[in-house]
Design a protein around this nucleic acid. Sequence first.
DNA 1: ATTGGTTTTGCACACCTATGCAAACGATCG
DNA 2: CGATCGTTTGCATAGGTGTGCAAAACCAAT
Lengths: 338, 338
Amino acid sequence: MSERKVTSLDVAAKAGVSQSAVSRVFTPGASVSQKMADKVRAAADELGYRPNVLARSLITGRSRIIGLVVAYLENQFYPDALERLSNALQEQGYHILIFMASGTGEGVGTVIDELLDYQVDGIITASVGMSDELAARCDAAGIPVVLFNRGQDDLRLSQVTSNNFEGAKKIAEFLVAGGHQRVGHITGWTGSSTGRDREAGFLAGLQTAGMEPVAIADGHYRRAEAAAAARRMVEADKVDAIFVGNDHMAFAVMDELRSEMGLRVPDDVSIVGYDDVPLAGWPAYDLTTLRQPSGRMVGATVETLLDRIDNPDTEPQKIAIDGPLIVRSSARVPEGWT
Amino acid sequence: MSERKVTSLDVAAKAGVSQSAVSRVFTPGASVSQKMADKVRAAADELGYRPNVLARSLITGRSRIIGLVVAYLENQFYPDALERLSNALQEQGYHILIFMASGTGEGVGTVIDELLDYQVDGIITASVGMSDELAARCDAAGIPVVLFNRGQDDLRLSQVTSNNFEGAKKIAEFLVAGGHQRVGHITGWTGSSTGRDREAGFLAGLQTAGMEPVAIADGHYRRAEAAAAARRMVEADKVDAIFVGNDHMAFAVMDELRSEMGLRVPDDVSIVGYDDVPLAGWPAYDLTTLRQPSGRMVGATVETLLDRIDNPDTEPQKIAIDGPLIVRSSARVPEGWT
DNA sequence: ATTGGTTTTGCACACCTATGCAAACGATCG
DNA sequence: CGATCGTTTGCATAGGTGTGCAAAACCAAT
């Protein structure tokens, strides 16, 4: 029925030119006369020809595919980032091949292998760790990697995060200024750099006021654990404020306190999150939180990655972007706070 | 530095066999002796060889890439579906190439073109319309398409939805049984089949009780429009219940009523949504809603798509899956409701 | 040892495009 | 009009893999 695939040869035949001429017409910056271009385009349109990206990639060594490794999408921060990443890359003629690292939980290792099979031009990992060995593997294959919202010590890897230390420090200062006496902290997964940096920044911020948290627990970025930790902190440790390692967990904490324990936020306990996902601005939570500037983070990620693809000799970069504290109503606001 | 790319020829040379032997070892179901397999695998492991999927696709005509077109990820239903789709497809050795139809808003047309450039084996569109002409183009290229959560009349397209008509009808019956007298409906975008089917089902459900909605407005699946519509319905039309076309808008409606207008849900107005996204179960909203069984919908989608890829002669399918009403606290519960 | 049959292997080509190179072309100038 | 130079075109090859076909190897049976 349908002529299965229309190739550049078909177009060439129809236009009465050589195959290489057709190729040149579809290769930006190649040497073609106007007349030739018109003739070929006409024939191509008529046949519905479009160049085969895969065949092209075989010879150029560029697939124009970016591999994205992501662990889970329940935290609204990641779909949001994914959407922005995809749009930004589409703009540049790249596309995202998705890879879930969560699923069967075979670990990131096999995932990277499969990604390499597709000859991706670059890799972005979001919210997922990457061992030195994996980094080495990608590096050996000459594929640039950018860690999004995660840090790593390996110097061969680029990374883009918000300034987690400073951000968490701001939160500490905000809570101190608000007159809180007994603050708790539910960390992100302490196996992640993000979680650790925020904890460190928070501790540093409290320390300058001569304070320290009365309770710390690892929430593992999960709702259930965060909620349980919050309950313990309120009941056993009598906290009057909790800094929760990300918004996703902060919502769970507010649910637990307000709906399960009948407490008021912020009257009984102040809650502060981290990320400023869209949901944080919805009235149901109206969460005070530190904004991760995901637009700029995505911009930096794409720029860094594409730059390294085009100039393989560029140094890997470690970028941390500052974000503002977004003051809403889930935490007591200090007098005269600007 | 790093031996740029290691090919099957390198492996063949190292193992002292022909290139085709290497190919066969990595092709499931090919004729290879045990001895040969061992020898080749050893050489391959040592060199770190993995077959080039793109080169393979050139000759097999199968890229093992599925194109996913998605409009926006703010509605939690879609990231959730995306995650499930990706996992299910990975299981079968396929991967998802993402395509945002929202971005520059150039429309789905160019998106499909670019997808075809990548020689995808199949296309899934989520929450996005597809014109007959586009369908024809994919069909001509021999690429199966499955519409996820959207309907279309074209018989060449497969589609998987929940049973929107029946679901919305259930909701109408629930509201009627709850004794509501003045019900309103904020539809999904009426340009979408999903929006229209739910409206039709809702009207049908009311009709069997001899009722009809006192107000109908198009929410376009957007928070702001849904909130505005809700306010009008409450102030001008004095509704005592609103069926909102999806959860995403229902949250906005609850926010508007509770936080902006100071009303109580369900005491002043009952709210019912559609989708049962995870957030609907969180205590802050605790939304009564009709569950779209996304697990089964994804299963059916993947099955249908892969089946059509393997057997191009299979008939396109239109699948509608029933979902249960999940009764929570955002709508008055009828006496003795089971 | 020879035969027949089965499995395994290698050869060569195909898939579709981009690009170096040399030939053809067109224009410009003397 | 011929020489010169820059532009445009075609030829041929490469890129990494799968597969039909025929030759080779193997095995068992006579």
